[in-house]
Amino acid sequence: QKTCLICGDEASGCHYGALTCGSCKVFFKRAAEGKQKYLCASRNDCTIDKFRRKNCPSCRLRKCYEAGMTLGARKL
């Protein structure tokens, strides 16, 4: 079983350049394409896991970029 690099849930494949679950794939697409700016209410070090991935979109998006996700990457 492969694990999502963002939240640790079961990965569905390589999306936008990183091994992710469906939830993180859709989140990244919407967040990266959108005009909304996300700000962390804490210290930009929130725990992003399967159960808390929706708590801080700022840290989740940062983790996506750190994992190498880009909109230009093709699905592998």
Score class of each variant (00 low, 15 high):
residue 22 G to S: 11
residue 38 Y to W: 05
residue 71 L to T: 15
residue 63 K to L: 08
residue 57 P to R: 09
residue 46 C to I: 01
residue 15 H to V: 06
residue 47 T to V: 13
residue 40 C to P: 01
residue 4 C to E: 02
residue 27 F to W: 03
residue 31 A to T: 14
residue 49 D to I: 04
residue 29 K to D: 05
residue 16 Y to I: 01
residue 64 C to I: 02
residue 73 A to L: 06
residue 32 A to N: 11
residue 25 K to V: 11
residue 39 L to T: 12
residue 22 G to R: 07
residue 15 H to F: 08
residue 1 Q to P: 03
residue 55 N to Q: 10
residue 20 T to A: 11
residue 48 I to M: 07
residue 72 G to L: 10
residue 30 R to E: 14
residue 18 A to S: 07
residue 32 A to S: 11
residue 26 V to W: 06
residue 72 G to R: 13
residue 16 Y to W: 08
residue 57 P to E: 14
residue 24 C to T: 00
residue 19 L to H: 11
residue 13 G to R: 06
residue 76 L to S: 09
residue 52 R to D: 14
residue 48 I to A: 05
residue 17 G to P: 02
residue 35 K to R: 13
residue 17 G to V: 01
residue 58 S to H: 08
residue 44 N to V: 04
residue 74 R to T: 15
residue 72 G to I: 15
residue 13 G to N: 06
residue 65 Y to V: 14
residue 3 T to V: 05
residue 22 G to E: 15
residue 13 G to A: 07
residue 40 C to F: 00
residue 58 S to R: 09
residue 49 D to Q: 04
residue 63 K to P: 00
residue 15 H to K: 08
residue 30 R to T: 13
residue 74 R to A: 08
residue 27 F to G: 01
residue 29 K to H: 12
residue 73 A to G: 10
residue 5 L to F: 09
residue 49 D to A: 04
residue 56 C to D: 02
residue 23 S to F: 08
residue 44 N to K: 06
residue 57 P to M: 09
residue 38 Y to R: 05
residue 31 A to V: 08
residue 16 Y to N: 04
residue 3 T to Y: 13
residue 6 I to E: 02
residue 3 T to P: 05
residue 24 C to D: 02
residue 12 S to Y: 12
residue 57 P to H: 14
residue 4 C to M: 02
residue 56 C to G: 00
residue 41 A to S: 11
residue 41 A to I: 04
residue 70 T to I: 04
residue 55 N to L: 12
residue 55 N to W: 03
residue 73 A to V: 11
residue 73 A to C: 04
residue 18 A to F: 02
residue 12 S to W: 06
residue 21 C to G: 00
residue 71 L to A: 07
residue 65 Y to T: 04
residue 20 T to L: 07
residue 19 L to C: 06
residue 72 G to F: 15
residue 55 N to S: 06
residue 57 P to Q: 09
residue 65 Y to S: 06
residue 46 C to A: 00
residue 48 I to E: 04
residue 74 R to I: 04
residue 9 D to I: 08
residue 35 K to V: 12
residue 6 I to A: 03
residue 27 F to E: 02
residue 26 V to Y: 06
residue 14 C to W: 03
residue 46 C to V: 00
residue 73 A to Y: 07
residue 37 K to R: 11
residue 48 I to K: 04
residue 21 C to P: 00
residue 38 Y to G: 05
residue 16 Y to L: 04
residue 22 G to Q: 12
residue 29 K to R: 10
residue 4 C to Y: 01
residue 48 I to L: 06
residue 39 L to W: 10
residue 63 K to T: 12
residue 38 Y to N: 05
residue 36 Q to M: 09
residue 36 Q to F: 07
residue 63 K to I: 07
residue 7 C to V: 00
residue 47 T to K: 15
residue 31 A to N: 07
residue 19 L to Y: 09
residue 24 C to A: 00
residue 35 K to G: 12
residue 25 K to A: 14
residue 24 C to P: 01
residue 36 Q to C: 06
residue 19 L to Q: 15
residue 74 R to S: 12
residue 13 G to L: 08
residue 5 L to T: 13
residue 5 L to H: 07
residue 9 D to T: 07
residue 63 K to Q: 09
residue 33 E to Q: 14
residue 55 N to P: 09
residue 65 Y to C: 14
residue 64 C to S: 01
residue 15 H to W: 15
residue 39 L to E: 14
residue 7 C to R: 02
residue 21 C to R: 01
residue 39 L to N: 13
residue 30 R to Q: 12
residue 12 S to E: 14
residue 18 A to H: 01
residue 72 G to E: 15
residue 23 S to K: 07
residue 72 G to T: 11
residue 22 G to H: 07
residue 37 K to M: 08
residue 13 G to M: 07
residue 14 C to R: 07
residue 9 D to R: 04
residue 50 K to W: 05
residue 8 G to P: 01
residue 58 S to K: 08
residue 56 C to W: 00
residue 65 Y to R: 08
residue 39 L to P: 09
residue 25 K to N: 14
residue 31 A to G: 09
residue 12 S to C: 04
residue 37 K to I: 09
residue 1 Q to A: 07
residue 38 Y to K: 09
residue 12 S to H: 05
residue 41 A to W: 06
residue 52 R to H: 10
residue 39 L to I: 14
residue 37 K to F: 04
residue 15 H to R: 05
residue 63 K to A: 07
residue 56 C to A: 03
residue 1 Q to C: 12
residue 22 G to N: 06
residue 19 L to F: 11
residue 40 C to S: 02
residue 46 C to R: 01
residue 26 V to C: 13
residue 16 Y to G: 03
residue 38 Y to L: 11
residue 21 C to M: 00
residue 39 L to V: 14
residue 37 K to Q: 15
residue 46 C to Y: 00
residue 18 A to E: 02
residue 64 C to W: 00
residue 33 E to T: 11
residue 44 N to I: 03
residue 65 Y to P: 00
residue 26 V to F: 08
residue 36 Q to A: 12
residue 39 L to Q: 13
residue 4 C to D: 03
residue 31 A to Y: 15
residue 48 I to H: 03
residue 74 R to P: 15
residue 72 G to A: 13
